[in-house]
């Protein structure tokens, strides 16, 4: 009885502690950042090294960087996951090699991705400091998580689905498109969100790839400052930038929260539509 109570208390305490950390962090950022938040802050360009003005151009740059990252990592990640689950056995040397390298890749610190992105995309491929370089670097970073979750999602689809499809003499491709991928959609979206969440909060990988320029970008070949780089610069490099840094941090959190909710809503909606009528 007493051991039981103790264990229950400890578990509750642990859960409370974790929640408290999150609530404290959120409360701190909201209390410090909310006063500086306004419509004009969201659309105006920064002035005086970010101490005045808004973050309009920075939000646009961040959005473009994430778009490039999603557009390149999603098809690549999905294709790799399908290859790993549907077209090779878990025991094959090739699959094991790919999975092992993904594990290593997901443990690599982001600054390494930044330096790699700078050397490969910016200098070797000649893309320069640009939104494209930044987005491609983030895609490299997001891929391991994306492929991992997508693989788990596809493996979780019951084998009955595959057998039934084979029994109905569906081709593997159409089984994939009509059956397996829709069934795994929530996991795929979750993987995409985890990857993009990691990527969207990235500073080290972006400061040397998409760069520091806070002007409104004309195209993806322009350098554009991401929100996280802006927050880092304001809080660490610009005297008197703390208030604006907190507002920008709040915007970044809201942005990630919105992306997250919308995508999980879409995933649920989509899945119901496709699975229930089967």
């Amino acid at each position: 009885m007493s051991t039981n109570t103790l264990a229950t208390c400890l578990i509750w305490l642990a859960a409370l502690f974790v929640t408290a950390v999150f609530v404290c962090l959120l409360a701190d950022i909201i209390s410090q950042g909310l006063t500086g938040l306004s419509w004009s802050y969201l659309i105006e360009p920064p002035q005086d090294a970010g101490r005045a003005g808004g973050i309009g151009s920075i939000i646009v740059s961040t959005g473009l960087i994430l778009l490039v990252a999603i557009a390149t990592s999603a098809p690549l990640g999905l294709a790799t996951a399908i290859l790993l689950t549907e077209f090779s056995t878990q025991k094959s040397t090739f699959a094991q090699f790919v999975e092992r390298s993904l594990d290593v890749l997901s443990g690599i610190p982001s600054i390494i991705f930044g330096l790699f992105g700078n050397a490969f995309f910016c200098i070797y491929l000649g893309l320069g400091f640009s939104i494209l370089s930044g987005g491609l670097t983030l895609a490299c970073m997001a891929l391991p998580i994306l492929i991992r979750t997508a693989t788990e999602g596809l493996r979780a689809v019951p084998n009955d689905y595959r057998l039934s499809a084979a029994a109905l003499s569906m081709t593997r491709t159409s089984a994939l498109i009509h059956l397996l991928v829709p069934a795994a959609t929530p996991a795929l979206v979750a993987g995409l969100m985890l990857g993009i969440g990691r990527a969207g909060a990235e500073t080290a990988a972006l400061i040397f790839t998409s760069g520091y320029v806070d002007r409104m970008p004309d195209s993806v070949m322009d350098s554009g400052r991401a929100l996280s780089v802006h927050i880092y610069d304001l809080s660490m490099n610009v005297a008197g930038g703390d208030a604006k840094a907190n507002s920008a941090a709040l915007v970044l959190i809201i942005l990630l929260f919105v992306i997250n909710s919308v995508s999980s809503f879409l995933a649920n909606h989509w899945m119901h539509k496709r699975i229930i009528h089967l």
Partner: peptide
């Protein structure tokens, strides 16, 4: 699988083309 590969490749090309177009238009 072949079809899927082709679709993926097409998607990537479309996305890239879409991103590069505004740039060339600007130039």
């Amino acid at each position: 699988m072949k079809k899927l590969g082709i679709i993926t490749a097409l998607l990537i090309i479309i996305v890239f083309a879409w991103f590069f177009l505004p740039m060339s238009a600007n130039n």
